[in-house]
């Protein structure tokens, strides 16, 4: 019988060594370790042995079972790791094949810039106010200190409607008057708003000029608003929008609805102020027109200019978007060409 146990061990272990697949392993297991397997049969013979041999034989069979169990577990682990290795090796795909198309979608670049603006201004307490596109001449010009025949009316090529006193706003500034009258409570309440929107100019459409463009106007009215606040606020905006610690320059300029008026230049964010083609080698980019609200405009908004003061500014999101992305042709903005829109 000893011979039989040794033979069985040898045969079983040898067979196990050649097994490399799960199903063969399962077969081996039932052949040797299953209820009706070889080992089972050996256990079955115990009862038939003489009493004296039973314990010894039983121990031998038990030892064999433990040995085969261990060998099985080891083999199983080996096969699993081999299979895993094969699987990892054979499961390789060509990662250079094109991706399965996923719909992406995107906001218009102008909207993206407007959102950036609105976020920054909202942090400084400026809320969005939407004003109308089709305006009365009075709001677009006269109430903004541009009476009929004012020389500065020449600066703006206006689209008029067939109703002689109605035009397409040439700037978002008429919204200043509307915001003051709506929120100023008869010139008794402070205001901080930004006025984004589409504006219109009767111009030749070229790579540089368009008949419609968006603007963002800002207006702050209070009892103690100073020109230094205008500088501080716009500089803060510029640094958040373009570059922390960017240099900001304020130049005297002229807008009929502000006095003093100024243009705001920010250090060119393309060359870091060292001079490049885009900033025309000056190191500066013009980003805003601004100034202290003209006393006449304050009055027209219902405020007493001897008590109240304010500042206003205007910016062109398209121009800024063009600078940021190297867009050479302003006509891309309303051309709705997906090849352009998909690049944002």
């Amino acid at each position: 019988m000893n011979y039989s146990i040794d033979e069985l061990r040898e045969g079983a272990l040898k067979a196990l060594e050649n097994i490399s697949a799960n199903d063969a392993l399962a077969n081996w297991r039932s052949q040797y370790l299953g209820r009706r397997g070889a080992l089972g049969k050996l256990f079955g013979t115990i009862g038939r042995l003489p009493q004296a041999q039973r314990a010894g034989f039983g121990q031998q069979v038990n030892a064999l079972q433990q040995e085969l169990d261990a060998a099985y577990a080891q083999r199983e682990q080996l096969i699993q790791s081999q299979l895993l290795a094969r699987d990892l090796e054979e499961g390789e795909i060509d990662i250079s094949l094109p991706a399965r198309p996923q719909g992406r979608g995107g906001l218009h670049p102008s909207t993206r810039t407007h959102r950036e603006f609105q976020t920054i201004w909202a942090d400084m307490g400026f809320q969005v106010y939407h004003s109308r596109d089709v305006e009365a001449d009075e709001f677009n010009f006269t109430l903004l200190n541009l009476p009929p025949h004012h020389p500065a009316r020449d600066m703006q090529d206006t689209f008029y409607t067939t109703n002689s006193n109605v035009l397409l706003r040439t700037h978002t500034s008429p919204g200043q008057i509307r915001a003051m009258r709506e929120f100023g409570a008869g010139g008794t309440k402070p205001i901080r708003v930004i006025l984004p929107g589409m504006c219109y100019r009767q111009e030749q459409v070229t790579a540089r000029s368009e008949i419609q463009f968006t603007q963002v106007e800002g207006l702050a009215i209070g009892r103690n608003i100073r020109m230094s606040d205008l500088k501080g606020t716009i500089a803060e905006f510029a640094r958040r929008m373009y570059k922390p610690k960017a240099k900001v320059r304020f130049r005297a300029s002229y807008f009929p609805f502000t006095e003093p008026s100024m243009e705001v230049d920010v250090e060119c964010f393309l060359c870091g102020g060292a001079g490049c083609r885009v900033c025309k080698y000056t190191g500066w980019l013009e980003i805003a027109g601004s100034g202290m609200v003209h006393p006449t405009v304050l009055r027209n908004g219902g405020y007493d200019p001897s008590v109240w003061s304010g500042f206003a500014f205007g910016m062109g999101p398209e121009r800024i978007t063009m600078l940021k992305h190297g867009i050479q042709d302003i006509r891309y903005f309303w051309g709705n060409d997906l090849r352009f829109l998909q690049q944002f």
């Binding site: 402070p190 608003i225 020109m227 606040d229 501080g232 130049r251 005297a252 006095e259 003093p260």
Partner: peptide, 23 residues
């Protein structure tokens, strides 16, 4: 005011944060 600020230089005006009442 514009003449005074312009000739003194806009760069001489400090940058401040609005201290005015928030609407």
């Amino acid at each position: 005011l514009e003449e005074i600020a312009r000739i003194i230089g806009y760069d001489q005006i400090p940058e401040t944060i609005m201290a005015d009442e928030m609407p």
